[in-house]
Amino acid sequence: MINGSKRIARPLRWAMVGGGQNSQIGYIHRSAALRDQSFALVAGAFDIDPQRGRDFGVQLGVDPERCYPDYRRLFEAEAHRPDGIEAVSVATPNGTHFEITRAALLAGLHVVCEKPLCFTVAEAEALRELATRHQRVVGVTYGYAGHPLIEQAREMIAQGDLGEIRMVHMQFAHGFHSQAADSQSASAQWRVDPKVAGPSYVLGDVGTHPLYLSHVMLPDLKIERLLCTRQSFVKSRAPLEDNAYTLMQYAGGAMGTVWSSAVNAGSMHGQLIRVIGSRASLQWWDERPNQLSFEVQGQPAQVLERGMGYLHANALLDDRIGAGHPEGLFEAWSNLYYRFALAMDAANRGEPAPMRYPDIEAGVEGVRWVERCVQSADDGGVWVDY
């Protein structure tokens, strides 16, 4: 159980690119990174408007001299300081992720990047090669993977509680963009602009989240081919989709589906994963993250509660406040950030990461999945090899 004690000898000197004053995701990054004494925010290029970014950085307690107008000057200036940054989080629109992450790796920095890592598999593999060559950690913020019950599901599946895995049903289908209100929201505007968002909207923005959960729960299940169809129900969003269905065939014969949507009217969040085996099923829903449904055929359905002693030890490892009290988004992100810190600290000492976390491979696979989905959909909804 996490009790707030130090995990590494000293906090890593950390900066942010993006995540300014009106950024919801920026606040989540900072809340998670600073919770466990693993990172210290000492610099940043917080906003595309240099003065606004400087003012905001000062409000966060950052030295005005270390509030930079852009990421290039941030990396260059910090490299010449004896107390310069060691890690950076990238919380900017999708179209900038590749160039900022590449520049950070070339500057010898560890990186935490929003997903998608970039737009193409070729770019993702280039980042992986850079990270490997410079022995730097790249973490990708699949935040919901930090919920302890995801670990419980992983362990139950591994020990055979579900039997042979037959189907994996995934969705992340909210309703907040059901209407054509993109002009009223800056974040919605760039998400439907191909120049900024890339080749997809909901496939990359929400669909990759439950997909990564499936990789955590089922690490041996490999996609062989997939078929995707995507729609722009709000026509002004074309060619980017606001709804998509993906059907996947895994090696060994299991099947999977992902419903990615921003037009599921009335749904608050709608991220869910259900794993179905030959004898039982598991289901986790992020709106009720402290419960894991376990349903054995022919027996009464069970609900496993986070923090209880009957869970696997790995499911209790990241528990923060004991059973009964609810844990949610901020706790899950904090669990990822302390894992990022442990991996970065180990890399600094030339040692392997001591714990699993969404790494550069997770970033590459997310990009690969989106690229294959777009290829399938744009070719008329056909099967494509993964």
Rank of each mutant, 00 (worst) to 15 (best):
G328F: 08
V234E: 07
A124P: 02
S200P: 13
R133I: 02
P352S: 11
I48M: 13
L60G: 07
M268P: 00
H134E: 15
R368M: 04
F233D: 11
G44E: 03
V196L: 14
L149A: 07
E365T: 05
R339N: 09
P194C: 04
G252K: 03
V168R: 07
C113G: 04
H177N: 12
E287R: 09
Y386N: 11
T96Q: 13
I321E: 11
H110V: 04
A158C: 01
D318W: 10
G44L: 00
G277Y: 03
F176N: 11
R372A: 12
Q152F: 14
D345S: 14
G309T: 09
G84E: 07
Y68P: 04
T120S: 15
A104I: 05
L282R: 03
R274M: 12
L127Q: 02
A280Q: 09
H134M: 02
M156G: 05
A280K: 07
Q171N: 14
P69A: 12
G57I: 00
P93T: 06
L74E: 15
Q159H: 10
P354W: 10
G61T: 03
P210R: 03
Q37V: 00
F294E: 01
G366T: 01
A188T: 12
I360E: 02
P194G: 09
V367T: 06
C118S: 11
C228R: 05
T96H: 15
M170S: 05
S187A: 12
P64N: 05
R288P: 00
A346E: 11
A77P: 05
G108P: 03
A145D: 11
R230H: 11
V202G: 08
R306V: 12
V275W: 03
P69S: 12
W259D: 07
Y71L: 00
G252M: 04
F46S: 09
A323D: 07
K115G: 01
A9V: 10
Y338H: 13
A323S: 14
L247H: 15
F340R: 02
M268R: 10
T92S: 14
K6Q: 14
E365D: 10
T96P: 03
D359Q: 02
H134V: 01
L213Q: 06
Y212C: 01
G53H: 06
L311R: 11
L329E: 09
S260C: 09
M255D: 05
G350E: 04
T101F: 04
A107V: 10
G4Q: 10
V111C: 06
A122N: 08
D242N: 14
L109F: 02
R320H: 08
